[in-house]
Design a protein around this nucleic acid. Structure first.
Lengths: 160, 160
DNA sequence: GTAAAATGCTTAGCACGCTAAGTAATAGCT
DNA sequence: AGCTATTACTTAGCGTGCTAAGCATTTTAC
């Protein structure tokens, strides 16, 4: 897969990813700010619903593609807002199971339509095929990064 | 551009953007850590070189797609590392012009090859055409976000 | 020419990602 | 069964993005 070095120099793909992420989050934040919901909060609620509303913190963090440690703050906020509850798992006392409260479910119903509308607006002019292609290419990059990180990790542990 | 609502619900594009950005940054951080260079630092140096090494902080921030305020910390660090210098612009005393020092230029020469190698590795399996297509689609999303933000901004200032 | 608006920088403090280190519970090995 | 490694969570603190507010300078409008 030979590439033109000069073109590669002018790329700023990673910055573009970061920028799009921040911009997108910003739009949704503005949209949902009347409901006291920030981006990490509503995505957690949203994902929780889609996962079946009865999963451990670890499973939820994986689905959200963030670290468990990063999720803790958000879950704490949602809990004190009365949107979710956390209770110890019976089978595995280490794990804490997260569930939506009635309030949380109710809120989700209210925002669902808005979220979808925003997605449609922000993806205007892009076909589903182009979208899947976008995801495909991004997944390749993700895989490459993981491969690379594994190598880098190995090269440091080798020194021990 | 009609879209399948159910498919849209399962998307997590913004999260993917964020994840890729963090992962990519992480790889480069590990690669360049022996040189005391973090991601924002070397990208600033890199972009500065490409802009001609004699630009205001504002121009640099724009090129890096971040806010001037965010750039300040990084420039401060680079300055105290002796990589760049900032001096008042003669024509406009408000502006501060950023230039690479000899040390900075020297360092850039050293890392240039590494940066390109990493890009090639992380983009393995993706053709230049696919890459341009990726950028094209991402730009559309960026434009849509900007349009949307403009509308949202207007709708709040209208209330004043 | 001066008052008002805009611009460029700076500082201060927030948001949300991360890693590192610690604890309790579980799983695996002999 | 008991020792060790692993797992799930938690806490603490960092990094890098942001907005808000303030200052000095420049530009614009009258």
């Amino acid at each position: 897969m030979p590439k033109d070095i000069e073109q590669l120099k002018e790329l700023s793909l990673a910055e573009d990813f970061g920028r799009l992420y921040r911009m997108w989050r910003n739009v949704v934040d503005v949209e949902l700010s009347p409901l006291e919901l920030t981006y990490p909060r509503w995505t957690a609620l949203w994902k929780l619903l889609r996962l079946g509303d009865n999963v451990s913190q670890k499973v939820l963090a994986n689905a959200l593609e963030i670290e468990v440690a990063s999720l803790m703050r958000t879950l704490g906020q949602l809990e004190s807002q009365g949107m979710i509850e956390r209770h110890a798992c019976r089978k595995d006392k280490r794990a804490r199971i997260v569930t939506l409260t009635k309030t949380g479910k109710h809120l989700l119903k209210k925002i669902e339509a808005r979220i979808i509308e925003v997605r449609i607006e922000l993806l205007d002019g892009i076909s589903m095929d182009e979208l899947f292609e976008l995801e495909r290419v991004m997944n390749i990059i993700g895989d490459n990064v993981n491969k690379k990180l594994k190598v880098l990790d190995k090269s440091t542990t080798d020194l021990i």
